[in-house]
Write a protein that binds this DNA or RNA. Structure first.
Lengths: 201, 201
DNA sequence: AAAAAATAAATTGTCGACAATGGCGGCGCG
DNA sequence: CGCGCCGCCATTGTCGACAATTTATTTTTT
């Protein structure tokens, strides 16, 4: 995810097993999980390679995200209880004080439970949705984030958008939360796409 | 999927390995796949059990389907070429002549490439969408279908809805195709839910 | 020199066995 | 008779080795 192993480089099962001093069995399963998360791609009988980030990949991924996280917002507006919403508000305030101070540095890099989107998805209470987003797509999303991390004016703007979304959810206005989330994700995509074109190629 | 192994019954790894005369390794992977498809559920250190079909599960599953297959329609309207659309039309006509004759018997039971929804998803050309729907959710969908198969007036109605959707796609009207698909799936859900309440419990 | 055959290497799937972990039932004790 | 402890057992994770298949490379033949 963090780019430590170069994009497109080959991942050898026996080689990594030696490197980490484990047998092939657990490493095999680990690679199966990576494949499920779309972090590696397999070519039959020719090995596995680290995914390459691309504009087309980003587009395809974010098309799904818009739809699914929009739905997550609608469901979260129905299903999150007041306590959870308050907790999420607290998380945002915490981000404001700890992270946003060093402006433009690193909003958005938190993992798991500390991530805003993650929490909303959990809040939807739909097990299939949670599984698909948190256990499969999210690692790839985070890979784009980490390697083409957001900075500049987008940081504070994203924070404001998060605020607006949580407000809509707190007002139990699922329709609005849905719309705001879709726009938020679309904007985020635009930002990353720009970086991809500048840096990547 | 077909209910041969009763819902809720335990699946033992070593036991099945003996039954099929294979070692635990391949059976292990097979079960991992079943879990990924949500056909079995694991309780840590207590074994795996066949999923139980339920109204809540159906609801959660179809919420995702509406969203994702709606998106698939929108994308298919953009990305399917004329040849693919014509092929899909042919498939529908074939269903009409071969299956629909024995009215109310078994529309909808075809697997894989022969399935209408399947083909549209492929037509979206979005690899993540294809993977999630065809490789993960679809087996569970088919389980509901097979075990609570459609019959009665719903059969011909579903066929007409399919026709309308393919027409919208052929007209490159993604928005309409999206809407029609969502309604189609919602109606299908209603039908299955009814059966679940009648028969299941 | 080009094509074909043979060989080497890597990937991938499979096997049988062992070990650790946690749940469940039986047993003793209060 | 109820409660907690202990041992058995199923589940689960791991290991090292072997086999099959496919791809790449080298050697041989025309």
């Amino acid at each position: 995810m963090e780019g430590e192993i170069a994009s497109g480089s080959k991942i050898s099962e026996p080689e990594l097993a030696r490197k980490f001093n484990v047998s092939r069995a657990p490493l095999r399963e680990a690679m199966a999980r990576l494949e499920r998360c779309h972090l590696i791609e397999r070519i039959p009988n020719a090995g596995a390679r680290v995914v390459k980030l691309s504009t087309e990949g980003l587009r395809a991924l974010y098309q799904i995200r818009e739809e699914l996280e929009g739905l997550a917002c609608r469901l979260a507006a129905e299903n999150m209880d007041d306590h959870e919403i308050e907790q999420l508000r607290g998380l945002l305030d915490q981000h404001l004080t700890t992270q946003r101070v060093r402006e433009g540095e690193s909003y958005y890099q938190e993992a798991g439970d500390l991530d805003f989107h993650y929490r909303i998805i959990i809040g939807s209470k739909n097990p299939y949705l949670i599984n698909m987003l948190c256990d499969e797509l999210y690692f790839l999303v985070r890979m784009y984030r980490v390697q083409l991390g957001m900075n500049g004016p987008r940081v504070s703007r994203a924070f404001d958008e998060h605020k607006a979304i949580i407000n809509a959810i707190a007002n139990r206005d699922g329709e609005l939360a849905d719309l705001l989330m879709r726009r938020h994700i679309a904007a985020s995509r635009g930002n990353i796409e720009l970086k991809l074109q500048q840096l990547g190629k």
